[in-house]
């Protein structure tokens, strides 16, 4: 029986590992952090769109399926530092603080995921300069009862609950200026979800979403968008947030109301940047160590997007999840299962 190396302990990697282990394969799961669950756990995602179910209800069983399966060896706080050989026999060196071990694998699955785009480079938004300009992942942490504010949305500057909140869509996405012309595929629904959560918790607050297009293509997303407008009175303004300044100690944003054809200024208490997805450090590192192809934006390139979506440019090395490009949790789980089936079929022969 051959062993599979899975790199990355986020949703995709966990699902891949548990699926393979259930089919009787041995799996070594390598995770650079000292916890499993990837970005979901790192940023304490609270609720998931479109059902507003707790993220924990999804991620906990996935983690448990890995931790409880004796076929899976979990290497936390570890990195794959080098790989030699070729399919169907790879030798990989796994390094952690205690030292280096070498193991032999029949196949490698890369599930190294994404990083949240760092909006510091969009200087006009003032992230890092103005305390009350925050990212959507910071809002997730705040809304989570186990987070730093114990579930309260608080302005970092004074700890008060903001009354007027603006959400900027497409931060670091659909933007050539930062080299990311692609769509992040989750920002629209996550912002809509957060707007609803905020309005639910603070009915007196005003939430404004500044968008270019609301891309509600996922299961139940369009319905959630309708709900945000009809039931929660979230205000969607068609115009991209352009600039943030501080006027008399209050945040002031500029945008164009493109449907009304007029430039506007808007004073708000807090601005949430819907930061998109960028290729993760782990993904860039894995591509380097394994020598597999990346696309223009650093994500991993499948051998054929249509016909072999989970195969990398190298035989025996597979890719899955958000390391291929922006992807939501639901689809990451599908990807994890798909790549597991592909690997199992290959190793069986």
């Amino acid at each position: 029986m051959k062993t599979v190396l899975v790199i990355g302990g986020g949703v995709t990697g966990l699902k891949t590992a548990s699926e393979l282990a259930e089919m009787g394969y041995n799996v070594s799961l390598v995770e650079k952090e000292d916890y499993l669950g990837g970005q979901v756990v790192r940023h304490k995602y609270y609720k998931l769109a479109p059902d507003l179910r707790l993220a924990g209800d999804v991620i906990d069983p996935v983690i448990k399926a890995v931790e409880s399966n004796s076929n899976i060896k979990v290497h936390k706080h570890s990195h794959v530092v080098s790989v030699s050989g070729s399919a169907p026999e790879f030798k990989a060196k796994i390094k952690n603080s205690k030292g280096e071990t070498e193991e032999t694998f029949g196949a490698i699955v890369v599930a190294t995921g994404f990083d949240h785009f760092d909006p510091t480079v969009k200087q006009e938004y003032g992230y890092g300069r103005f305390k009350d300009v925050v990212t959507n992942s910071e809002v997730e942490e705040m809304l989570n009862p186990n987070g730093p504010t114990k579930g309260e949305l608080k302005r970092p500057s004074d700890g008060k609950v903001p009354k007027k909140i603006a959400i900027f869509q497409c931060v670091g996405s659909r933007d050539r200026q930062v080299g990311n012309p692609y769509c992040c595929r989750v920002g629209c629904v996550v912002s809509t979800k957060q707007a609803i959560e905020i309005k639910e918790k603070y009915p007196d607050s005003e939430v404004y979403v500044y968008y270019m297009d609301m891309r509600m293509f996922g299961r139940g997303w369009e319905e959630l968008y309708g709900k945000a407008m009809e039931e929660y009175e979230v205000i969607f303004t068609r115009g991209r947030g352009a600039e943030v300044t501080l006027k008399n100690q209050q945040l002031s944003l500029r945008a164009e109301e493109t449907i009304m054809d007029r430039p506007i200024q808007h004073s708000v208490d807090m601005i949430i940047l819907a930061a998109g997805m960028a290729a993760g450090d782990g993904t860039i590192e894995a591509a380097k160590v394994l020598g597999i192809k990346q696309n223009d934006y650093g994500f991993l390139a499948p051998k054929d997007d249509f016909l072999s979506p989970n195969e990398s440019s190298k035989s025996g090395i597979y890719i899955a999840g958000a390391d291929k490009g922006p992807m939501d949790i639901e689809n990451c789980i599908v990807e994890g299962a798909a790549v597991a089936a592909k690997v199992a079929g290959k190793l069986k022969n």
Binding site: C170, M212, G239, R240, A255, T258, P263
Partner: peptide, 11 residues
Amino acid sequence: CLNCGTCVANC
């Protein structure tokens, strides 16, 4: 053109 209005807002 995305018709996003960034140019107008900054103009």
